[in-house]
């Protein structure tokens, strides 16, 4: 187990290092998130729909798009010079490789989400401060399982035709349960409801995360083994 985690950390660190050296993907994802928020501002009638009613949808649709785009890059870099072959030949288990990729993706998506949240507060003046920690909790719970499936699928679609379109088509059905839960919980939290009212949803999210992280870890070898 320590080896598994240590190797996963090495893979994640490698990915994040590559990412932070160029910062192209991260910058693109952040600018994209900001632009989606702008599109939302003009894609609604502010006199007809109060911001607070629309806020959870704006937040989560933005996060979803940004996450799907971010996932596209996870295995893309490994295609160059057959880098994936090198990773597979290295003496680390497939699970470590998957968890490393998953970890790097989670950090990447978390950065995009946190920036998105800040921009969201700035643009839409939604009071998230009094619920910041349950909101962060639901952001984490809603992302882990979904990003696990996304990491698994992105390992496959990079080697298909139409990869950029294939990933969202395969992945968006998997977004539905976390999206429904996250939007409901966010709406209740912003509406000042107590945390006890959303515990059922949080449990559902936790079950989803546990199921899909396990399943994706088990299935990942099938996507890379030659």
């Amino acid at each position: 187990m320590p080896d598994l985690l240590r190797h996963a950390w090495l893979v994640a660190r490698k990915d994040l290092q590559v990412e932070f050296r160029s910062r192209t993907a991260l910058t693109l994802a952040l600018v994209f998130t900001a632009l989606v928020l702008v599109v939302f501002e003009y894609g609604r009638d502010p006199t007809a729909v109060p911001t607070l009613d629309l806020a959870p949808s704006i937040l989560w649709v933005t996060f979803s798009f940004a996450a799907v785009l971010a996932l596209n890059r996870a295995f893309h870099a490994e295609l160059e010079n057959d880098a994936l072959e090198g990773l597979l030949l290295s003496p680390i288990s497939r699970s470590s490789l998957f968890w490393g990729k998953l970890g790097a993706n989670l950090v990447f998506v978390a950065l995009v989400q946190l920036t998105g949240l800040a921009l969201f507060v700035l643009f839409f003046d939604v009071p998230v401060w009094r619920v910041w920690w349950p909101l962060i909790l639901v952001m984490v719970l809603a992302s882990v399982g979904f990003i696990a499936v996304g990491t698994l699928f992105s390992a496959m679609v990079v080697r298909t035709r139409f990869a950029e379109l294939m990933l969202p088509v395969l992945l968006l059905p998997f977004l539905l349960p976390p999206l429904i839960a996250a939007v409901t919980v966010t709406a209740k939290l912003l509406g000042g409801r107590p945390l006890s009212e959303v515990l059922g949803w949080l449990r559902l999210l936790a079950a989803y995360d546990l199921t899909f992280v396990t399943l994706a870890t088990l299935l990942f070898p099938a996507t890379v083994t030659e």
């Binding site: 499936v149 698994l152 496959m156 395969l170 399943l215 299935l219 099938a222 996507t223 083994t225």
Partner: peptide, 11 residues
């Protein structure tokens, strides 16, 4: 076949 199986199981 392997890719399809992964998506089939997840689905």
């Amino acid at each position: 076949a392997r890719y399809a199986a992964v998506v089939g199981i997840c689905g």
